[in-house]
Design a protein around this nucleic acid. Structure first.
Length: 546
RNA sequence: GCGCCCGUAGCUCAGUGGACAGAGCGCUGCCCUCCGGAGGCAGAAGUCGCAGGUUCAAAUCCUGCCGGGCGUACCA
């Protein structure tokens, strides 16, 4: 990050001398081949057309201007690119920045302390969390952390659908299981919940209550509905705890109703002429705005659909003062997302207020070909079972290591492996080795006075240069990952740092080398700090010992 | 049919306009009495789904086609 700025400044100076100012930001890239230097700029390609110059010549002139610049040991032009190789002093500044800024290193200020909400999981309380929810849980939690790193004031929120048809069905299913446990032939309702968890719960209730609720009536319904939701929420919070996810706010659908928000939102949409009646139901005019079909807002039995409630919920989010809202949702919600965005637009909520982080589904390797998971049918892999088996760190990492928009193939065998083949351990082990090294240095009395002021001139090994260049990228990686809701970029970055570290560590001796020891300890402390910070953003531990 | 996502090495995936396309796993060979061996080094392996187009430059942008996933409910 600071090295990029350094190149940018140097190029600007050269362009000023050449009387060819660049209006846009100077492009700086990592060259594809090591021999091209540490960083490069294709600025000459950018300026050549307007200046009517040959990029190859222009790049040579830029390089010539910067010959002998103390920030670089080499500035060269090749085929229109300008390639930069930093001086050791410039690189050493990076290490000093890392150590100097410490925990704050890599943070960005784009959020400016403004309020941002990340809503995720929001799974119906109709069963325990599944592997699919696991991806969303990890993704939402890490995206929230990434945005917090950019200076946003984050609220993690879970929307709890505690009313409606599915919940009635759940209560009725539970009652059926309860009666079955008392040896009464009561079938599960049509479309009811088949999962084993209700069976277990039914037996428990039968043992506790005996024949207290023999009939399905309004009173029984109320008892079972409420109890079922409470029990399911208990399971869900326990599951969340297992993966280390916690929420700041839980919003219940019932509250939105009681506050009259649904009605109010419907009226606002109606005033804007966006609603019409057809076959006894109320529909949203969305085909007028290029969407595929008009969805129902209020059913003919006068109950609101999920879509209308969701629109009202988002209007409420806007009123609550969030500057931005990110909803993490599965790919099966695209259609609905467009409807919500359209409705918000009609209601005057500024564009860009709501953003979706859309993710594809998870397949666990070895289970391909099985039917799609369904909580209702009782056909799913429980998140809890996988977390208990693999550990929180591995589970979380594997869930965010792929681009959200790509289907996730979960390699269970690799996740289960405890060697360095497993990327989680590969990264964590790098940190552990550094921690161990620092402890050993302290024990031997080889720890330098102030790490940040150590003489770094002994860092002449090529791997040390590589490592420093990589450390310098940390802030960029965090920012891009936050902007794009793409935690996998951070995973790849950390694996890259670990991949530079491990071979270096096994090849180079750190302790007992005098000044070189001090310099290497400073560099590795910086690397350790970044590994720990990166792992923390992912919600993983950085073990001092493994 | 329509909409969205995906198609890159044997497998799982990075890489959204720049220089001879990368990683992990797997495979082949070599090395390791040493700060934590839960190792290290090297190698083989790719017409970037196909065909056109735009550009000085395309895995990347545009169009069409092929293949896979998801959606297309008065479910959520």
């Amino acid at each position: 990050m600071q090295l990029e700025a350094l190149v940018r400044a140097a190029v600007n100076e050269a362009l000023l001398q050449l009387n060819t100012p660049c209006e846009e930001e100077i492009p700086v890239d990592r060259p594809p081949r090591r021999e091209y230097g540490d960083l490069s700029s294709r600025v000459a390609f950018l300026l050549a057309p307007a200046a009517q110059r040959n990029p190859a010549v222009l790049s040579q002139e830029i390089a010539a201007c910067l010959a002998g610049d103390p920030r670089f040991v080499a500035v060269s032009a090749e085929g229109g690119f300008v390639n930069f190789t930093f001086s050791l002093a410039a690189l050493a500044d990076v290490v000093r920045s890392v150590l100097g800024r410490g925990e704050a290193y890599g943070r960005g200020g784009g959020g400016g302390g403004r309020k941002l909400q990340v809503e995720f999981i929001s799974s119906n309380p109709t069963g325990p969390l599944t592997v699919g929810h696991g991806r969303q849980a990890a993704l939402g939690d890490v995206v929230a952390s990434l945005l917090a790193e950019q200076g946003w004031q984050i609220t993690r929120e879970y929307y709890l659908n505690d009313e409606g048809r599915q919940i009635e069905l759940l209560g009725r299913s539970l009652w059926a299981r309860y009666r079955q446990a008392l040896n009464q032939e009561v079938p599960l309702p049509e479309g009811g919940y088949h999962g084993e968890y209700l069976l277990t719960l039914g037996h428990r209730l039968a043992a506790a209550w005996g024949d207290r609720y023999p009939e399905w009536n309004a009173g029984t319904q109320e008892v079972f509905r409420k109890l079922a939701v409470d029990e399911m929420m208990g399971m869900i919070t326990a599951d969340l705890e297992a993966i280390g996810v916690s929420f700041d706010v839980w919003t219940k659908e019932g509250d939105l109703h009681r506050r009259g928000l649904i009605e109010e939102t419907l009226n606002s949409l109606r005033e804007r002429g966006a609603v019409y009646e057809h076959e006894g139901a109320l529909w949203l005019r969305s085909t007028d705005h290029g969407l595929g079909r008009d969805p129902v807002l209020v059913r003919s039995d006068s109950t609101p659909t999920y879509l209308l409630v969701d629109i009202a919920y988002h209007v409420d989010k806007f009123r609550r003062g969030f500057v931005k809202v990110v909803d993490v949702q599965g790919a099966d919600h695209v259609e609905e997302q467009r409807q919500v965005l359209l409705a918000l637009n009609l209601l005057g909520v500024p564009a860009g207020f709501l953003d979706y982080c859309l993710h594809q589904f998870v397949t666990v390797r070895g289970q391909e070909g099985v039917e799609r998971m369904s909580t209702r049918a009782g056909r799913f892999l429980r998140l809890r079972d996988m977390v208990d088996d693999l550990g929180r760190d591995v589970f979380r990492y594997f869930m965010v290591m792929r681009k959200p928009s790509s289907h996730l193939n979960f390699d269970y065998e690799l996740a289960k492996s405890s060697s360095m083949e497993n990327p989680v351990y590969y990264v964590q082990y790098a940190y552990t080795r550094i921690a161990s090294l620092v402890r050993e240095a302290e024990r031997l009395g080889e720890t330098p006075e102030g790490l940040a002021s150590v003489d770094l001139s002994p860092l002449t090994d090529p791997s040390e240069r590589e490592l420093i260049l990589e450390l310098d990228r940390f802030g960029d990686v965090l920012r891009t990952a936050a902007d794009e809701y793409a935690p996998h970029l951070l995973c790849e970055y950390l694996e890259g740092v670990a991949k530079l570290f491990h071979p270096y560590y096994s090849r180079v001796r750190v302790l007992g080398q005098g000044r070189t020891t001090h310099a290497r300890l400073a560099l590795l402390s910086g690397a350790g700090l970044i590994l720990r910070r990166g792992l923390a953003v992912l919600g993983l531990s950085a073990p001092e010992e493994m």
